[in-house]
Computed example of a mutant assay.
Amino acid sequence: MSRPTRHPFHGAVYHVTARGNRRANMFVDAYDHSIWLRIFEETVDQFHLLVYGLCLMPNHFHLLVETPDANLSAAMHYLNGKYAKKFNWRHSLSGHLLQDRFHAVHVDKQEYLLELLRYIVLNPVRAELTHHADHWRWSSHRYHCRLAPCPAWLASDWVIDQFPGPTRAARIHAYRKFVDAGHVRHVRTSGQIDEALAFAGDADIPMLAIIQSSHPHRDMAIRAAWQCGAYTREQIARHFALSVRTVSRVINAEASAESVSRSQAPGHVSAAGRGR
């Protein structure tokens, strides 16, 4: 399978994910997490990344990063390559630790960054690894909430300053309320994004914001959202600020095109033809 072409640019923000090969765990114990975080700190320093959020899951991780130097691929190659060598050496293994390279989706910083941050830190909750984001040790959420000493590589001040309040404590409280609101099934936000976070049981169901940013055209994004099976036409319509009728027309247009394509395919016999 060919890899999608990447078009990096200065100041781009990405939601980055990488998964263990064959979905195997890439973190076995706390020491593995500590090794990864140490290498990640090196990566941030060497490649001048701005980090807004992260979450380490047993068999994959999520990052929300900005690349002032347009060097995401080089940074991820360094991080994943060095960690894979350390992991294999420590556990007496060989071969690929990660499935493929990594996956990155460009994010609109102004509109979707906070929504994605909430999505990322709630991954352990949706996967039923913990009851609350506060309790997941391997996430930026605890740092943003000052439940643990904040590392220098995390742009926590910028994140917290996006929330209202006269004091830092008040802004942290507003951030925590924002994350806690994500525990309900549907959240209507100031950005008019209907999340429908993955309470269906699959922690990898993408948010509508991610689906939209992954497709160059609106209609393609609408069809992708419908085909993933996680969203109703009403939810898709609210997100794209369209009527349900317009969303249905986009979805049905593809179905009609597929039907015509099948009818014109070589060897296709119509019902009338079969009756003769």
Rank of each mutant, 00 (worst) to 15 (best):
R38T: 11
A18H: 12
V159P: 07
A174Q: 05
G201M: 06
I39C: 07
D180A: 13
P58T: 14
W153I: 11
D29I: 03
V28C: 15
H132S: 12
S73Q: 09
R276G: 03
T232F: 07
P166R: 08
P8T: 08
A18G: 08
A271Q: 10
Q212Y: 12
F47R: 01
D100R: 15
N71S: 06
N123A: 11
A241Y: 05
P151Q: 07
A237H: 04
L114I: 02
Q235M: 13
T67N: 08
Q162F: 00
R238T: 13
Y78E: 11
V184R: 13
F102W: 12
G20D: 07
P149T: 02
F102D: 07
Y83S: 10
I211L: 08
Q162G: 00
R168V: 03
C55Y: 12
E111Y: 10
R218H: 02
R38W: 09
D219W: 04
H239S: 14
H91L: 06
G229D: 11
D45N: 14
M26W: 09
Y231G: 13
D194G: 12
Y143W: 13
D180T: 10
N88S: 05
L98C: 03
A170C: 04
R118M: 08
K109G: 03
S214F: 02
D161H: 11
V260A: 09
H33T: 02
Y52N: 03
G201P: 02
L79G: 04
A241W: 06
Y52F: 15
Y78I: 05
I172Y: 10
H10A: 15
P58C: 08
Q212C: 08
L122K: 04
A152M: 09
A255T: 12
V250W: 10
W153R: 11
R23N: 13
D161S: 13
S214A: 15
P266D: 05
L117I: 15
V250K: 08
A169C: 06
A104K: 08
N88W: 01
H60P: 10
A209L: 01
P4S: 12
S92P: 00
F47T: 01
L197W: 14
V125L: 12
A272C: 03
V16N: 09
P206N: 13
L72P: 08
R142N: 02
Y14M: 10
A200V: 09
N88I: 02
I211E: 04
S243G: 15
A170W: 02
D69P: 11
N88P: 01
H141S: 05
F27T: 06
A75V: 12
W158D: 14
D180Q: 14
L117K: 12
Y52S: 08
H33W: 12
G20Y: 02
V159E: 09
Y14Q: 09
H96T: 04
V250Q: 11
R262C: 03
S94I: 05
A155Q: 13
Y78V: 03
P124C: 03
R101F: 04
N123H: 09
R3F: 03
L154Q: 01
R249C: 09
S156W: 13
G53R: 09
R3Q: 06
A271F: 07
A272N: 06
H106R: 10
R6E: 02
L154T: 00
M1P: 07
S259N: 08
N80K: 15
H131G: 10
A174F: 00
L113P: 14
G165R: 06
A70K: 06
E41M: 04
